[in-house]
């Protein structure tokens, strides 16, 4: 049930989800549906000098429709989406796995 809800309810492109491109570290890619939280937390990054946007991305825990928890690589996987609605898409590195279960992954992109 939780896996079914992940795609039919939470990551439904007719509601809150949108198509984004998932790029794996090795260069392979696929289009998936994701909920992009653009209430960007802006903070000084580790560099200490710059304010950067942070995005919270919700995807299905699935190797076809979303990103599976065992394929995710926090050493280079990225997502291609628009920082602001209407703008061109840009590649954003997945920096953290904020949480996950059998149905969903919650990712941080910067």
């Amino acid at each position: 049930m939780i896996q079914s809800d992940a795609s039919t309810v939470f990551c439904n492109a007719n509601d809150h989800a949108e198509p984004v491109t998932y790029y794996k570290r090795d260069g392979r890619s696929r289009i998936i549906n994701a909920v992009v939280e653009r209430q960007a937390l802006q903070l000084l990054n580790e560099d200490g000098d710059n304010i950067i946007p942070i995005f919270e991305i919700h995807v299905k825990n699935d190797s076809v429709l979303g990103i599976s928890s065992d394929e995710l690589n926090l050493g280079g996987d990225s997502l291609d989406f628009a920082i602001r609605v209407g703008q061109a898409k840009s590649l954003r590195t997945i920096t953290k796995l904020l949480g996950h279960d059998e149905g969903m992954l919650i990712l941080e992109c910067r």
């Binding site: 200490g48 000098d49 992109c109």
Partner: peptide
């Protein structure tokens, strides 16, 4: 970096700041 930082973190990347 520019004012509204638009770079994304990458492996073996250098960011030069003053």
């Amino acid at each position: 970096p520019v004012r509204l930082d638009d770079y994304t973190p990458k492996n073996l990347q250098i960011v030069l700041t003053k």
